[in-house]
């Protein structure tokens, strides 16, 4: 399958034959070496929303981490356009439990590259959007899971990066907040933002993504226009009787 869309646009980020292995302490896998990614090549074009689908444990999150520069590939190269930043948005990680929601939001915004003044500027917006009210000043350890994800989602949404890497986040909060979150995310995605979006929820991928890459067994299995890839992905899941973990 060829990438029909976006090929005329500038490439922001390119993975070329990226392989990632690590040594596993157990005698599982290939003599203790776990192949997370095996010669994965992909391109991310400016302003597009790229979806990555695949079953649990095929290396989707690892791809995002490599894109964000958190992990380096064992072999292969990652090329990022100069001066661009990629930042990973994943819910529930990176919180400091002893600090208030406000401090955590400030910390998160600053870690994503805002300076202290810019970050402080986002805070009221974050408080308002997340609807946390007075809980915003309470330590995060008192938050429920839903409140945590509200805070995480909002913080990530309000800060600005060139490439937003999203790991399974749209299933946040209660029904009402979920709707609001999706609407806000859609607006962001439809705009100038370049997004890489990892999800299991087909409906979301279908709605948000221009192009989809399907990863299976550490390799790129299929790549192309969202609807087509999703149809193939679904077809591949049906005959198998194994649960989807």
């Amino acid at each position: 399958m060829t990438d029909v869309m976006g090929s005329h646009r500038p490439v922001l980020l390119e993975l070329d034959n990226v392989t990632l292995d690590y040594r596993s302490s157990k005698d599982t896998y290939d003599q203790g070496v776990h192949h997370v990614l095996d010669r994965v090549s992909l391109r991310l074009y400016e302003n597009e929303t790229l979806g990555i689908i695949g079953r649990n444990g095929v290396g989707k999150t690892t791809i995002l981490r490599i894109m964000a520069g958190i992990l380096a590939p064992t072999s292969g190269t990652v090329r990022m356009e100069k001066g661009k930043t990629a930042s990973l948005l994943s819910i529930g990680l990176g919180f400091r439990n002893e600090l208030s929601g406000r401090d955590n939001a400030l910390l998160a915004a600053m870690l994503q590259g805002a300076n202290k003044r810019q970050a402080s500027g986002f805070l009221e917006e974050i408080k308002e959007f997340s609807e946390l009210g007075d809980s915003f000043e309470e330590p995060v350890k008192t938050y429920s899971a839903g409140m945590r994800s509200r805070l995480g989602f909002t913080t990530a949404l309000m800060t600005h990066v060139d490439i937003l890497l999203i790991d399974e986040v749209l299933s946040v909060g209660d029904a009402q907040f979920k709707q609001k979150a999706q609407a806000a995310m859609k607006e962001r995605v439809k705009g100038e933002q370049t997004v890489v979006f990892v999800s299991h929820v087909e409906a979301q991928v279908r709605e948000l993504c221009d192009r989809v890459i399907w990863i299976d067994k550490a390799k790129v299995c299929c790549e192309g226009e969202a609807g087509l890839v999703l149809d193939e992905y679904r077809a591949s899941l049906r005959p198998e009787s194994q649960p989807r973990a």
Partner: peptide
């Protein structure tokens, strides 16, 4: 771990 997984500090 949480921070290490999220950002290249």
């Amino acid at each position: 771990q949480g921070l290490v997984a999220r950002i290249n500090l």
